[in-house]
Design a protein around this nucleic acid. Sequence first.
DNA 1: CGGATTTGTTTATTGGTTGAATTATTTGAG
DNA 2: CTCAAATAATTCAACCAATAAACAAATCCG
Lengths: 371, 371
Amino acid sequence: MTASSAPVRQSSVRAHNLALVLRTVANRADQPSRAAISTLTGLTRATVSALVDDLIAGGLLVELDPPPRTGAGRPAAGLALSPDGPAGLGLEINVDYLAACVVDLTGTVRHRAVRATHPSVALSDLSRLGDLSRLAGEVAAAASADGLTLAGATLAVPGLVTPAGIVRVAPNLGWQDVDVPALLGATPELAGLPISVDNEANLAALSELRAGGDEPTFLYVSGEIGIGAGIVLDGALYRGVRGWSGEIGHVTVYPDGRPCRCGADGCLEQYAGQEQVAADPALAASALGIALSAVVNLLDIGVVVLGGAYAPVFDQLREGIETELRRRVLTAELSPVLLRPAALGADAAMRGAADTVVREVRENPAAWLSR
Amino acid sequence: MTASSAPVRQSSVRAHNLALVLRTVANRADQPSRAAISTLTGLTRATVSALVDDLIAGGLLVELDPPPRTGAGRPAAGLALSPDGPAGLGLEINVDYLAACVVDLTGTVRHRAVRATHPSVALSDLSRLGDLSRLAGEVAAAASADGLTLAGATLAVPGLVTPAGIVRVAPNLGWQDVDVPALLGATPELAGLPISVDNEANLAALSELRAGGDEPTFLYVSGEIGIGAGIVLDGALYRGVRGWSGEIGHVTVYPDGRPCRCGADGCLEQYAGQEQVAADPALAASALGIALSAVVNLLDIGVVVLGGAYAPVFDQLREGIETELRRRVLTAELSPVLLRPAALGADAAMRGAADTVVREVRENPAAWLSR
DNA sequence: CGGATTTGTTTATTGGTTGAATTATTTGAG
DNA sequence: CTCAAATAATTCAACCAATAAACAAATCCG
């Protein structure tokens, strides 16, 4: 019953239709004309024209010069997302490196910088956020030289993050209750920029939404030291009631099996963690298959993406996982589960972070236009 | 990116705001006035008045006669859902009984009829749908005598159902590819009524949404011969990509355990099915706890409701399930999982079926008004 | 009884979409 | 070369729904 309890006024109509037009252009492989958008969306040509005018004026769309001519009639002016429109700053902080990139509205990575952390710096030292901010300043300056305007920044962190961007706990960084938006927002390089923070597995999952296939619903499993999963339902990340969803690493695979550091026995992590994959790929694949079967039986998800440490050894794992899926997924015969490696490698989380910024602009262009 | 790709026009604004007003009245325990709705929703008093006029004219709201007076000023006219408004017909077909009920707009069960199937009738005999239709005719006639108008009917079936209402397979009924809406719609009692079909566990889960606590996110587990689950996320049933979510009965609990009729080994169903619960409650509880831990780890769900055959023996199962949850849920210490028995008993699926009809009217009153 | 107060309605205005007419730009036929 | 046909895009009057402000209704209180 939590169905958008906000009143709707005419301006909401315009906001919705602006987003509809922008989304229509973004989702097409070609460069649709106003008339094409009209038939695709059901809006009148007059309305589409007015909306497109706003989007062009706001720098979100561009009219392409050489109109692809076909048949009789006035040639159509193709429309496309503007490569000079608002861009997103993606940041990542991890155990041994910092990274930053700028992704433009079309989804292209325009600038990218990665820096290994100096070994002398303590992991938990929050001055690393200052280093990160300086790194971000570099790519931001390069983007600015291109004429790009940054719409915001998102940081990927290996840990539990509250909706407000507070890092509740990040074991591998030694962080606890760190107010990242406040700290980063106080640096000169990022002052004034809207900053959000999210879990790296979540962001990596979202990066697959753009870079991978076109499925709007899939499970992204990232194998690192621990195993995390991002559940993408209908184009949106499912975060759970408290934001702690996706803990597939602690799904029980063998109830009386190996003890896990979490206190339970037989967790997936003990059979398909990074080390175990290297030591015994067959066991890892089987354990993964059992856990994934549970997910598919529960959520009826048709696509599973393997990322992180799983991606490079995908071919070794595939057969073993699929064997279990065929056996254990009730509806396997009606339609098989598609298994594929992640499209992006180590950059996935950072890319997903930058993508969330531009996705926000694309999903709510009215907010950007009236900023 | 599948964010409502339909254009929005002025009439959509009205449709949304009609639903907003109706929902506001429905969710309040008291009988709010137009002015109160105005402040609750953010709409102007004038707008609320216009919308309420439409809703009263359409028979969805009623103005209460004795205005509860308080303080100075013109007394407010209280508004409430109309008990004479559109009602929902809930149907259920199961192995050994048929059932039908009528629920009015306020959620009250107005009429109810249950009939045991005559032992001589073959289970798979589709003439049982005719018997069901006659039973439905009885409660529908009683409702009609009350002045109620039926807005639609929903049938609860123990099996996999497509969005179009085709029962793909219902093992316990011996059904396969049965076009229920067509068959029921052809009977004189139900002719002309919009008929939908859904899985019984899904519908039972939805009935908990109204009858149970106020949590908008929970897992409903129904133990019968098979075990099904309804996943309610944020007030809406999560159906999965193909509508086959919730197959918790075939989640693997013991990878090398008892063979299951589905072809796999160690499915939950083999340890916590109706018979097993009776034979060995401790084993059933432990197996359930293992499977539920997986769900909670994956989805970060805070509430689990036990229904069907589990509800009567809830006290016997509780401790065993909670022990596993405490051990195996990663975030158990941060906030424990709440376990409770279903609020409704055997009627849950049928009630949920009727509820979905009235919920549909309440969520989209404009469609009802302009019918 | 009359002012204060709150509820609900009326009226003019505004914002946004629609549909029809109009203008713009091309191809192709005579 | 010119004109008709075709397609794209814009202009403009009409309409619909929400808003704000004024107004009417119904009560309380001094």
